[in-house]
Write a protein that binds this DNA or RNA. Structure first.
Length: 572
RNA sequence: CGGGGUAUGGCGCAGUCUGGUAGCGCGCUUCGUUCGGGACGAAGAGGCCGCAGGUUCGAAUCCUGCUACCCCGACCA
């Protein structure tokens, strides 16, 4: 491709809408342009990258035995009503009406549509297992779209749905998809991690997420370098941890603590560490039931874990100040577990405490020397906190570390949740109708592009992994208009590389070298060949890699071979 | 949804407090000189100052309402 026949649109300064390095670079390099909040056009250069990602995803899905199809983006409300998700999915579901006032939505995901296809098409166990996938635009009306293409409202997703006669067949496909995902992110040359995950609102029996590691990631990942354990912090099991400095229990004592409210105040007042205090959270669930959650002062509540405790009863929020007063007789800041008549749920680490401080449920008073075993033996003990750096790994083989990740893939074992709701059955060998067992597997294709830049950039711009670069090599001829030898050498090389199937971007603009170099570096082309009269006199051209590791003079005839060997080297 | 901020040419910004013919840098067009790391000179093009009302002889500027976009938050009693 010649720049004169392509469309490059680079900016020296990033538009003020962008904050994140990857977002700024995508705008500066002219990969995307914003239409509206969370809506982006893919410009020609960006589309080439997107297609690269799509191609790798498609190849690996095909290799893993999945079959491509394409479903409508707009879906009728009736299907969503069958699974009750028309109500449950909430405001993220973009609902639209047609001219007859009939309800539709723009699909945020396609379980309903694919299950509808399956119940019409699949009759016999002989047709199973089968795994369908598509690469398609989705729309999710995010609370707060941000980071450009990374949390856009309209985005491109690869979604696959598998159907099985039984769980063991699902397990086989699930494992195969897990392997396919590892191949995909490895081929894309990204630093990533597969982690055990919460199944969230989609539900089901097992789930893994794939995260591209980056500090700006919106997810926290807990992993154990020694055992290989890795899980989303939402799921990672928090083991009970004991305070080393714990003293044997002393008699309960009520202390006047005027103005002492937060855990920080408490530890200052009592001149101790926050791990010797317990915080009491009064929560209210969707049915109006209250409960008290007990956490060590230095620990954080994990809402997802807590919502699964029967005594909590599903999703919840902190109780209002009035409710808190009605239940405890005190205002927040003096709350404690003693004497409460609502269910008590204590974190595992709280249950080991023998000498802690807690509010007295009387404004301006705290207890010290509370003993869990003596005073709170009636409480439910559960894992309701987030793991912390240094916590023991759940497999007892090391200590956990934390890092941030961008979720680019998620696989689920769905079971029969959708097939039962939509009556999607097949006949087994005995002629019995059974619900189809399902799995689903998503990859955020457009998000991968942003995540890759977040991971691969420097002060000059993007540094694409070869696998997703819009072009593999840039040719920058110096004095193309003036110099006959430069022109001849440039055309010869361009022809040769093109014939070899290498994707070349020839900068045939009549620009000064600095402009060409800066642009090619900004848009992140992995290799660059500079052709100028200075070296051409000796039959040489300059070959350079984007990472700056090497810059060398090669004979013109050597270039194609060198690039070819660099690429194959990369693929191993 | 709560809090904060912004809106002036394609991009980045000044001008608003203190009302009086809309400016700077980059980019763009033309010509000339340059040409191995974002050149220089000259001449140009391009703006409903987010939208709607109001105040005023006069509004980018003051007042009211709206819209769009960005950031933080929606765990810590």
């Amino acid at each position: 491709m010649r720049v004169s026949e392509f469309f490059l649109s680079t900016l020296k300064e990033a538009p003020s809408e962008a904050e994140l390095p990857s977002h700024k670079l995508m705008l500066r390099a002219g990969l995307i342009r914003r239409l509206s909040s969370g809506l982006y056009s893919w410009m020609p250069l960006g589309l080439r990258v997107l297609r690269k990602v799509e191609t790798i995803v498609r190849e690996e899905m095909n290799r893993a035995g999945a079959i491509e199809l394409l479903m409508p983006a707009v879906q009728p409300a009736e299907l969503w009503q069958e699974t009750k998700r028309w109500q449950k999915y909430g405001p993220e579901l973009l609902r639209i009406k047609d001219r007859h006032e009939r309800d539709y939505c723009f699909g945020p995901t396609h379980e309903e549509v694919i299950t509808d296809i399956a119940r019409r098409e699949i009759r016999s166990y002989r047709q199973l297992p089968v795994n369908f996938y598509q690469i398609q635009n989705k729309f999710r009306d995010e609370i707060r779209p941000r980071f450009g293409v990374m949390r856009a409202r309209e985005f491109i997703m690869k979604d696959a749905y598998s159907f099985h006669p039984d769980q063991s067949s699902l397990n086989t496909t699930y494992t195969r998809m897990h392997e396919a995902y590892i191949r995909i992110f490895s081929r894309l040359d990204l630093e990533f991690r597969a982690v055990a995950a919460d199944t969230g609102s989609i539900g089901g029996t097992g789930s893994h997420e794939f995260h591209v590691l980056a500090d700006c990631g919106e997810d926290s990942i807990a992993y154990c370098p020694t055992s290989g354990y890795a899980a989303n912090i939402e799921l990672a099991e928090a083991m009970a941890v004991k305070n080393m400095s714990e003293n044997p229990s002393e008699p309960l004592e009520k202390i006047a603590t005027p103005g002492v409210k937060s855990i920080e105040d408490v530890s200052q007042f009592f001149k101790t560490e926050s791990c010797h205090a317990v915080k009491t959270l009064i929560i209210e669930n969707d049915h109006g039931d209250f409960a008290a959650l007990l956490l060590r002062g230095d620990h954080e509540l994990n809402e997802i874990k807590a919502a699964k405790i029967p005594a909590v009863g599903g999703s919840f929020r902190l109780a209002s100040e009035e409710s808190v007063r009605k239940i405890t007789g005190a205002s927040s800041g003096s709350l404690g577990p003693l004497g409460l008549s609502i269910p008590l749920i204590a974190d595992r680490s709280v249950a080991l405490l023998e000498n802690f401080i807690a509010g007295a449920n009387e404004d301006g008073f705290h207890y010290q020397h509370v003993s869990f075993s003596r005073d709170l033996s009636h409480a439910v003990i559960a894992d309701i906190r987030n793991v912390q750096e240094g916590d023991p790994s759940p497999d007892c083989k090391g200590k956990l570390s934390l890092c941030r990740g961008i979720e680019v893939g998620h696989i689920f074992q769905l079971g029969t949740r959708y097939s039962e709701a939509m009556n999607a059955t097949f006949l087994d060998e005995a002629g019995q109708a059974k619900p189809l067992v399902m799995g689903c597997y998503g990859i955020g294709v457009s998000r991968i592009v942003g995540a890759a830049i977040e991971q691969c950039n420097d002060e000059k711009g993007i540094r694409w992994p070869v696998a997703m670069a819009p072009f593999t090599v840039a040719i920058c001829p110096i004095g193309l208009k003036k110099s006959e030898p430069v022109r001849t050498a440039t055309e010869t090389l361009y022809q040769k590389l093109t014939e070899q199937g290498i994707e070349v971007l020839l900068d045939d603009r009549d620009e000064r070298p600095g402009v060409m170099f800066a642009d090619m570096e900004l848009i992140g082309i992995p290799y660059r060949v500079t052709i100028g009269e200075r070296n051409l006199g000796n039959g040489l051209v300059e070959f350079m890699t984007r990472n700056g590791e090497s810059s060398e003079l090669l004979a013109l005839q050597e270039v194609a071979g060198r690039i070819q060997s660099q690429i194959t080297q990369k693929n191993h």
